[in-house]
Structures are given as structure tokens and as C-alpha cells.
């Protein structure tokens, strides 16, 4: 099993997520992109754990999942409250705060 491929895949997933955060308008999609970045990090952790022969990376992946779940709760509650006020989940519509 070529481990480099997994690292490459995680880098690709991370990049897709990062670009998604920057270019997508819908807050939910932006949020999904962030989750993708976190999962890309998880894949990298697990792959490196396999490559280095230690289990630390696998344990870290569990911690990250828990943190990501907590982040979902907070993030969705913010997005939902904004959606109920404005009837839209578009990031660009929320633009009262400007220089």
C-alpha cells in the first residue's frame, strides 16, 4: 500500500475544502467545506500514524471528530438563527459590518 497516495488525497481534500470556504456563498456549504478540511487532517493523521508505526495519530483523529461535532452544533445554531432573521443563508447578504 503506497502511503504517499493517502497523503496526496488528504492534501487534495484539504485544498478543495479551503477553496470551497473562499468561493462558495452559502453558509451551509462553506461550513461543509470546513468539515472537509478537518477530515482531510484526520486522514493525514491516520496515514502518518500508519507510516510511523505509532497509534497517536489514530487517537487524535477521534478527538478531532468530537471537536468537529461540537463545532457543528455551534455553527449550525448560528447559521439557523441568521437564516430565521434574514430568510437567507448567503454569506454575502450579511454585510452590515463594513469599514
Amino acid at each position: 500500500m503506497e502511503l504517499n497516495n493517502f497523503i496526496l488525497l488528504s492534501a487534495i481534500l484539504f485544498s478543495i475544502g479551503a477553496v470551497g470556504v473562499l468561493v462558495r456563498r452559502n453558509a451551509i456549504v462553506v461550513f461543509m467545506s470546513v468539515e472537509m478540511m478537518l477530515n482531510a487532517a484526520n486522514l493525514a493523521f491516520v496515514t502518518f500514524a500508519k507510516a510511523n508505526g505509532s497509534i497517536d495519530g489514530q487517537v487524535i483523529a477521534f478527538f478531532v471528530m468530537v471537536v468537529a461535532a461540537a463545532e457543528v452544533v455551534v455553527g449550525l445554531s448560528i447559521i439557523v438563527s441568521i437564516f430565521r432573521t434574514r430568510r437567507t443563508a448567503s454569506i454575502d447578504e450579511a454585510s452590515l459590518l463594513k469599514f
Binding site: I7, S10, F14, G17, A18, V21, F31, V34, M37, L38, A40, A41, N42, A44, F45, T47, F48, A51, N52, D56, G57, I60, V64, E71, G75
Partner: peptide, 16 residues
């Protein structure tokens, strides 16, 4: 969340 994802991915690379 965006920046903490960067930090986490950086941690993964450093772990590697």
C-alpha cells in the same frame, strides 16, 4: 473554523 482547520492540518504534517 477556517483558521483552526489550518492549524489542525499543520499539526498533522508536523506529526508526520
Amino acid at each position: 473554523a477556517f483558521s483552526s482547520a489550518f492549524m489542525l492540518y499543520g499539526s498533522a504534517l508536523v506529526y508526520g
